[in-house]
Nucleic acid binder design. Structure first.
Lengths: 210, 210
DNA sequence: GGTTCTAGAACC
DNA sequence: GGTTCTAGAACC
């Protein structure tokens, strides 16, 4: 086979291993050549695995298979006979086929980065949301302050208006009296002391309310 | 041992299995009695496991051990000799001890509900946070509206006050003139037409500003 | 990228 | 709660 450097060692080793006729007693292609069988798990693990890998554990071998997207082929029994205890184990991958080592480069190792990324994204989302909430909260406080100030100003303005209206009405009354007085004076030729008193009283209202 | 119904079958079977002297060749207590050893994984799996469980897979056995909180005891080699390939496998649990079957009821199976619950809780948290943000947002809009209304009212009040102050000043001037006029009248005995004009003009300012 | 221990999830 | 397949995570 071509030694394609893009293909991980595990895949080339596995393909060679399955292809090799010397080990067909323990691991070989299925009849269709689209999956492989481990005929004796225990002997395979102890005799074959350490020749190719740094261990002799079936579990580690299976972990690698799953890491590269291989799936165990489940044997649905005919419903009558229970699956035999130590039957062969079969694994399959769409790009792992007898005689077609060129397909191997399509097999990609599952990167462990995918899931941590998801968690990071979720964590970042939470962080952003919390920051947003805090931002809105401080804005709220800011607006509350402004609202309270406006309310106070508003009340003060209403008070001043009430005050000014009162003064206005008083002055209006005062003017009426003055005019009336003047008319009276024009008729009688006599001045009126009351008008002067009212005028002095009205000047008190010129001061701004607290 | 007491058949405590609170203790899952796996734990009683395991404890019995380890305690049983007949199987000490394949599985037994450690010297200290606070852990157990599987001396020959392969024979143990094929010969012992099916006698107690519904399988003969070491992987399934280990999965159960981890499910109940057992931990594999790692053998730190002296740094010189590499760990022998097929050395015994050792597992330990704080409540799994030689001769103390009473402790077994403290061993709890890890419920698979925990993780989905966590995810649910996280999802619920997200939902709550989003609801909270939306709530704050609508409050914000409410306050914004009230703030704008107050601002408008405030501006109108300032205008009315400005208007009233003007009217007040005008009236003040009018009164001064009237008084002055009256004094003049008192001295000359002649009326003044200007004052009456001013009085009518001041009444215009009584209308409220728009 | 490889190896190991532990856990998730589906199915029973 | 038990069994099986697959995946996560830590360490190398």
């Amino acid at each position: 086979m071509k030694h394609n450097s893009n293909v991980p060692a595990f895949l080339t080793k596995l393909w060679t291993l399955v292809e090799d006729a010397d080990t067909n007693e323990l691991i070989c292609w299925s009849q269709e050549g689209n999956s492989f069988l481990v005929l004796d798990e225990q002997r395979f693990a102890k005799e074959i695995l350490p020749k190719f890998f740094k261990h002799n554990n079936m579990a580690s071998f299976i972990r690698q298979l799953n890491m590269y997207g291989f799936r165990k082929v489940m044997h649905i029994d005919t419903g009558f006979v229970k699956q035999e205890r130590d039957g062969p184990v079969e694994f399959q991958h769409p790009y792992f086929k007898h005689g077609q080592d060129g397909l191997l480069e399509n097999i990609k190792r599952k990167v462990s980065n995918t899931r941590p990324e998801d968690n990071k994204i979720r964590h970042e989302d939470l962080t952003k949301i919390l920051a947003s909430v805090q931002s809105v909260h401080s804005q709220q406080e800011n607006i509350d302050t402004r609202l309270a100030a406006l309310k106070r100003e508003n009340e003060a303005l209403w008070m001043e208006i009430s005050d000014l209206r009162q003064k206005h009405a008083h002055q209006q009354q005062l003017i009426k009296k003055v005019v009336k007085e003047q008319n009276t004076v024009l008729k009688s030729g006599q001045p009126n002391i009351t008008m002067l008193k009212n005028y002095k009283a009205s000047s008190y209202y010129l001061s701004k309310p607290v």
